[in-house]
Structures are given as structure tokens and as C-alpha cells.
């Protein structure tokens, strides 16, 4: 049996290691484990970017029928990522700032940083500038669900808050309390 790459039904190219049966087991040797985990992290972030997925939960490995089936399972060799191992991978990702527990104070679900919050902040500011919305007050909804789809469409609110907080540090954004909740105002500013 040769191990080969595989293109999923959503058009994502899985690496050949994904067809190696032991890849789905948490390795007892620490060196081997760190190599395997590194591969998993790369795979998870790559797939999340491909499908614009923001959340990964331990449950996704427990029960089938979710967005992550193609990655967490390999039907062709009848293997699936075990939940305990997934939870270890999530922990490693959080330690490396490649993900954050969301909501905080639990360890079952993470918000994936397939773009770092700093990168999201830049993208956000660029979007506000290019759509001519500097200085006007926007609701979060205006950003996550704009009339014209943008790279920020569907961005989770916690991530959006992080990005705004980063911009606020350089005086390029400001959170404003408005009648029905919160809004944000962007300024030109310089980096």
C-alpha cells in the first residue's frame, strides 16, 4: 500500500501522511509526537483557511457529520482522530498562539488563528479604508455581514473584538457605545 495525497470533495489536497494509519493515534514517543502534532496543526489551519472555518471542537472528533469530517476522519483507511489526541493538539495550538479557547475558561473548543489577530486587524482597517467608511460609525453587524461580501464576512465577534483592540492601540479604531449595543469607528492613523 503506497501512501498518497488525496483531494477531498471540497477540493482540499490532503497530505500523504493523512493516509498513514498511525497518524491518527497519539504517539507515546515525545519526539515523534511533536512531529505528528506539527503536521496536524498545519493540516488543521490549512483546511480552516480553505473552508473559512473558525471553530474546532473536541466534539467534532467524537461525532461525525460536521465540517471537519474530511480531515478528522479517513474513511479510506478506516481511521479517525481520537478526541483525546485532538484535545492535546488544541492545547498545543493555544500555547503557540495559533488558536485561542473560545469561550475562554474551557478546553473543548477553540477559535482558530489561521490568520493572526494582528493580520485580521490590518485586513479590517484596509477594508474600512477601501470602502470609504473611515470616521463613520459601524455596527459589528455591518462588518460581519456587509452588503458586498468581503474577506471579513462571517468573522466571529470575539476575533473582531481582538482585531479592533489591536487597532485601538495605534489609535486607528475606537469602540463606541450606541443605542442598540456597540459600534466601532475607524480612523486614518498611521501604523
Amino acid at each position: 500500500m503506497a501512501l498518497s495525497t488525496h483531494t477531498t470533495s471540497t477540493g482540499y489536497l490532503l497530505p500523504s501522511i493523512h493516509s498513514a494509519p498511525p497518524f491518527f493515534t497519539q504517539q507515546p514517543n515525545p519526539t515523534t509526537l511533536s512531529i505528528a502534532t506539527e503536521q496536524w496543526i498545519r493540516l488543521i489551519l490549512g483546511y480552516a483557511r480553505h473552508r473559512k472555518l473558525f471553530f474546532l471542537r473536541v466534539e467534532d472528533a467524537e461525532t461525525p457529520g460536521n465540517d471537519w469530517d474530511e480531515v478528522l476522519r479517513n474513511e479510506r483507511i478506516n481511521r479517525k482522530l481520537l478526541p483525546t489526541y485532538l484535545s492535546y493538539i488544541l492545547d498545543t495550538m493555544v500555547k503557540k498562539n495559533l488558536a485561542a479557547y473560545e469561550p475562554p475558561k474551557q478546553t473543548r473548543a477553540v477559535l482558530l488563528h489561521w490568520r493572526l489577530p494582528e493580520e485580521w486587524a490590518e485586513a479590517l482597517h484596509e477594508w474600512a479604508t477601501s470602502t470609504g467608511q473611515l470616521n463613520s460609525i459601524l455596527t459589528f453587524y455591518d462588518i460581519t455581514d456587509p452588503p458586498l461580501e468581503s474577506s471579513l464576512t462571517g468573522i466571529p465577534i470575539p476575533l473582531l473584538r481582538k482585531a479592533i483592540a489591536i487597532l485601538a492601540k495605534t489609535n486607528r479604531a475606537q469602540i463606541i457605545t450606541i443605542a442598540d449595543g456597540e459600534g466601532v469607528r475607524f480612523f486614518t492613523g498611521n501604523k
Binding site: 498511525p22 507515546p28 505528528a36
Partner: peptide, 18 residues
Amino acid sequence: LLRDGMCWVDAQDPNGSA
């Protein structure tokens, strides 16, 4: 497996540890 790191273990093999 443990000392030399020369192989990987698969706990999901139907016939036991592979």
C-alpha cells in the same frame, strides 16, 4: 517505539496495536 523513536504506533488497528 519508545526508546529509539524508529516507529509509530497505531492503536486503531482492528487486530491490536500495529
